[in-house]
Design a protein around this nucleic acid. Structure first.
Length: 328
DNA sequence: AAATCGGGGAG
DNA sequence: CTCCCAGATTT
């Protein structure tokens, strides 16, 4: 296997001049800013996160501010980043920080891991990038870089295996407990290499600082096996597409009559059964709320809205429907 | 280990 | 058109 020491030096030098200037990487960025960026970046490219992160941090620059925001606004600012449950979990994580951590982002991976929406990757990333702790950070980019540089494979495969986790530990630079700088540089540099050079589709090996050390190149750049390829998730016709269309309609901001909402989805192929099933799942997830219209024009009609929009002083025309699972 | 959960830009 | 992106949670 390729020795890690020289790779550390090469990547650190490369990162020093090639790194993108992202706002959540700046020294003045708060731990909360790092936390917000990591959650937004889960399965979502940097280019699409940037504008949403800037608006979020402008409106809710602290966990306390985020925890106090109406859920409807949280989901509206999240916009079309995808997987909107992430937005609610980020708010729930903010609330947990207010309750259990004095309104501060916890500093250890163990504490971070206990927050809603924070898994192995995000806990390690926040601990490392916000608090300079020498955690082993492994995302999809780093898995791919490790697979190529150290294991000589084209792609790492779909699942994060125990062997890959062990490899990630082994190739970490030696660090002292009181100084995670080396580890942080290694993590962020490997991630950046995967994002800019060692890409999944068409790697730019001509510009790679470790091309001459890469086990995959030295093996002749063999193509990915069928096992290694990640088959893309289907999209057209899925519940995810229908749920997305419902959320897009609700993001317009006003409560909508349920029959009209489901009837006017721009998805001709979706059956009435699927539309209703998806709406139920969104309500179950807390992403939508059902209520009863008190509007004289259509009294008693079922209405749907983003959470927190019903029964407000600004809009007395609708009431929240008391929990009744069978309601339609 | 496998399914589910968004959305859009790049190839 | 297909692929893939700083994953987490549930089954």
């Amino acid at each position: 296997m390729t020795e890690a020491g020289l790779v550390h030096e090469r990547l650190a030098d490369w990162y020093a001049h090639a790194a993108r200037d992202l706002p959540w990487r700046r020294a003045e960025c708060s731990p909360w800013g790092v936390m917000v960026s990591e959650v937004m970046l889960q399965q979502t490219p940097v280019a699409r996160v940037l504008p949403r992160w800037l608006e979020w941090m402008d409106r809710w620059p602290t966990p306390a501010a985020t925890a106090a925001a109406p859920a409807a606004e949280i989901l509206t600012v999240w916009d079309r980043l995808g997987y909107p449950r992430r937005a609610l979990r980020l708010q729930a994580a903010a609330a947990a920080m207010v309750e259990r951590h004095g309104g501060e982002v916890p500093t250890t991976a163990e504490e971070l891991r206990d927050l809603p929406g924070v898994g192995e990757y995000t806990a390690a990333a926040v601990a490392c990038f916000a608090f300079q702790r020498p955690e082993v950070v492994v995302d999809t980019n780093i898995r791919r870089v490790h697979a190529r540089v150290f294991s000589g494979k084209a792609l790492p495969g779909k699942t994060y295996t125990a062997a890959q986790r062990q490899l990630a530990r082994e190739v970490m630079p030696a660090t002292f407990d009181d100084d995670g700088a080396l580890a942080c540089t290694w993590n962020i540099a490997a991630m950046e290499l995967g994002a800019l050079i060692c890409t999944a589709r068409a790697p730019r090996c001509a510009s790679c600082p470790v091309a001459d050390l890469c086990a995959w190149r030295l093996a002749g750049s063999p193509p990915a096996t069928e096992e290694e390829k990640t088959r893309g998730q289907a999209w057209a016709g899925t519940d995810r597409q229908v749920r997305g269309a419902i959320m897009a309609a609700l993001r317009q901001g006003r409560p909508v009559l349920q029959w009209r909402l489901l009837d006017q989805l721009p998805l001709p192929e979706a059956t009435a059964q699927q539309r209703l099933r998806c709406l139920e799942s969104l309500v179950a997830d807390g992403l939508a709320v059902r209520g009863i219209s008190t509007d004289p024009e259509e009294p008693g009609e079922t209405v749907i809205a983003l959470p927190g929009l019903l029964d407000s002083p600004q809009d007395p025309s609708h009431q929240v429907l008391p929990a009744s699972p069978g309601a339609q």
